[in-house]
Simulated assay, not measured.
Amino acid sequence: MVAGETSGDLLAGLLLDGLRKRWPQVQAGGIGGPNMAERGFEAWWPSEALAVRGYVEVLRHYRGILRIRNQLKARLLLERPQMFIGIDAPDFNLDLEAALKAQGIKTVHFICPSIWAWRADRVQKLQRSVDHVLCIFPFEPALLESHGIAATYVGHPLASVIPLQPDRQAARLKLGLSPDDKVVALLPGSRQSEVQYLASRFFEAAALIRKAQPAIKFIVPAVPALKARLEQMALASGLGDGLQILPSQSHTALAACDVTLIASGTATLEAALYKRPMVIAYNMNWMSWHIMRRKQLQPWVGLPNILCRDFVVPELLQDAATPRALADAVLQWLQAAPEKIAAVQQRFTTLHTELRRDTATLATDAIQKILQA
Rank of each mutant, 00 (worst) to 15 (best):
A3H: 06
T6M: 11
T6K: 05
G8A: 05
L10D: 12
R20V: 02
Q27A: 13
A28N: 03
M36H: 07
A37S: 13
R39N: 07
R39Q: 09
G40S: 04
E42T: 13
A43Y: 03
A49K: 01
A49V: 00
L50K: 00
V58I: 15
V58D: 03
L59V: 05
H61A: 06
H61G: 00
L66I: 03
L66F: 05
R67D: 00
I68P: 00
Q71D: 08
L78P: 00
R80Y: 04
P81I: 05
A89S: 15
L96P: 00
E97F: 00
A102Y: 04
G104Q: 10
G104L: 07
T107E: 06
C112W: 11
C112K: 03
A120Q: 14
S129V: 00
V130Y: 02
A142G: 08
L143Q: 13
G148A: 08
A150D: 10
Y153F: 15
P157T: 09
V161L: 15
I162Q: 05
P166V: 07
R168Q: 14
R168V: 09
Q169S: 11
A170C: 01
A171T: 03
R172G: 08
L173R: 11
L173Y: 03
K174E: 15
D180E: 15
L186Q: 07
L187N: 03
P188L: 13
G189N: 08
R191T: 01
R191M: 03
Q196K: 14
Y197A: 10
A199V: 05
A199W: 06
F202T: 03
E204C: 09
E204R: 14
A207K: 12
R210P: 12
K217P: 07
P221E: 10
V223P: 07
P224D: 11
P224Y: 03
A225E: 15
R229I: 02
S237D: 13
G242E: 14
G242Q: 09
G242D: 11
G242T: 07
G242V: 08
Q244C: 10
I245V: 11
T252A: 15
T252F: 02
A255H: 11
A255F: 15
A255T: 01
A256W: 06
A256K: 04
V259N: 08
A267N: 04
A267F: 02
L273E: 05
Y274S: 02
K275Q: 15
R276F: 14
V279P: 09
I280D: 13
N285G: 01
N285E: 14
S288R: 00
W289R: 06
H290V: 09
I291P: 01
R294A: 12
Q296M: 13
L297M: 12
I306R: 10
F311R: 07
V312I: 15
P314I: 02
Q318F: 04
A320K: 15
P323H: 12
A325D: 14
A325R: 12
W333Q: 10
Q335W: 13
K340N: 14
R356N: 14
A360S: 13
T361L: 13
T361K: 11
D365S: 01
A366M: 06
K369W: 04
K369Q: 14
